[in-house]
Design a protein around this nucleic acid. Sequence first.
RNA 1: CUACAAACCCGAGCUAUCGUUCCGAUUUUAUCGGGAAGGAAAGUCCGGACAGCGCAGAGCAACCCACCGGUUAAUAGCCGGCUUCCCGGUUUUAACCGGGAAAGAGAAAGUGCCACAGAAAAUAACUACCCACGAUGAAAAUCGGGGGAAAAGGUGAAAAUGUGGGGUAAAAGCUCACGGUCCUGAUUGGUAACAAACGGGAUGGGUAAACCUUGGGUGCUGUAAUGCCACAUAUAGGAUCCUCUGAGGGCUGCUCGCCCAAUUCCGCUUCAUGCGGGAAGGGUCCAGGGUAGGCAGCAAGAUCGUGCCAGUAAUGGCAUGGCCAGAUAAAUGAUAGUUUAGAAACAGAAUCCGGCUUAUGAGGUUUGUAGUUUU
RNA 2: GCGAAAGUAGCUCAUUUGGUAGAGCACGACCUUGCCAAGGUCGGGGUGGCCGGUUCGAGCCCGGUCUUUCGCU
Length: 130
Amino acid sequence: MSATYSYNTTEKLKSRKLLDQLFTKGRSVSVFPVKAFYMPLLSDAEVIVQAGVGVSARNFTKAVHRNRIKRLLRETYRLNKAILQEGLQADQKKAAVFFLYIGKEIPDFVTLNELMPSLLNKLAIAIAKA
RNA sequence: CUACAAACCCGAGCUAUCGUUCCGAUUUUAUCGGGAAGGAAAGUCCGGACAGCGCAGAGCAACCCACCGGUUAAUAGCCGGCUUCCCGGUUUUAACCGGGAAAGAGAAAGUGCCACAGAAAAUAACUACCCACGAUGAAAAUCGGGGGAAAAGGUGAAAAUGUGGGGUAAAAGCUCACGGUCCUGAUUGGUAACAAACGGGAUGGGUAAACCUUGGGUGCUGUAAUGCCACAUAUAGGAUCCUCUGAGGGCUGCUCGCCCAAUUCCGCUUCAUGCGGGAAGGGUCCAGGGUAGGCAGCAAGAUCGUGCCAGUAAUGGCAUGGCCAGAUAAAUGAUAGUUUAGAAACAGAAUCCGGCUUAUGAGGUUUGUAGUUUU
RNA sequence: GCGAAAGUAGCUCAUUUGGUAGAGCACGACCUUGCCAAGGUCGGGGUGGCCGGUUCGAGCCCGGUCUUUCGCU
């Protein structure tokens, strides 16, 4: 449990191939203003969950705003990811997840932090069914 | 002192907890230590470094630049000066002082355009003026076609070098004097642009951010360039063209010129050579398959801080100290407290630099304008 | 990262050597009809994305800026 709040390179979703599959074949769950794409992974993966974050450049033209939102998403995921990990560990499953911000206004930390647990619960249930 | 405008400076610090990325050390995968966005990282408007293309030929085209000198790796930037124009002040028309602006070569090589108005917008005769001729008439005068003439004429953004004298039928730079503008010769000062005064000539409206002319300059493509390693595959399918009489490619958009470019066997014929076929190789297109990893480039540099010196300045030289982001779905963050007058603006590196332009909260400095108060 | 194009009426678009900006649809009024549609007549609506410059005069020429779209890798 020492790495509970970590979010380092191995836990990031990096492969271009996986990302392509995730957006073409994966399913999604959303709690406005965040939409989460998910896909089960083979069991030989190193970590339980690989996750990535993103914002559409169409909604936020300034790079500063996109960076801000991505950082908030990473931070709230980092603080709350134990919910998802424990849910998956119970079912012996692994998954890839991508969080996409679909709102049009810049959120603050407090609201996102309150919202993230419910999204992760939803995700855990949906992946368990899949 | 207040308000507004412009330019410049600055673009938060500290503590705790939880995290990210890079480097180093210890150790063996977790600890410890250190570094971690900007003045514009932006727009991509200029200029370079570096790399590749034949270390890149000639002409044309295209594009760019345009007072002079300096600065620099280089520029369309910057600094200093000249000229012209604008504003303000002093005062006697003009000159001087202060501030600002200039895409500032050529309109006297040529072409085009100049709406409306006006006689006419560039070879200026419509009205009025003058002359002689013809017709009518007693005459004054009127009419007609012809010539002279830019001194007068409502317009217009712009109307043919200004004033005065002479001159004439009436007039006119037609001529003279004093000026304006332009070209040119020599003199003096200045590196030069140019300025001063002198001689000769000209008197030609504007527009070159219209075509253009003159002078000068530019090879093209960009770090996803480029080099290397690893992995994978199809000793791979079809069509078509070519193998020195050469498909095709390259050198700059075009032309010229130049360069690169893949060969042998068999049969027939023959002086040379030509024809047919096979194989191999090269190119183009179609269809399909695989990979999408790593290293270098890549961060010590036209570098930053401080001091001295040279220069009016931009800038340069010397000394000394420092090492200051380096990712690849892409780090540099979150929360709480605290300091402060305030923490709130614009905004996120992706090969790297020099400039320009644009955005920018609070505070500070300087300048200008307006108002108030005191002297 | 590199490059290109566009911005004109509510919408879709014209506007050539620079000289008072137009069409179609839509909108409003009237005619027509028992009523509506179609048709006919008339009308309103524009600081030409924004700022500056050249010119006597800019939608048009030049510079800057903003927004949108597209292409290459």
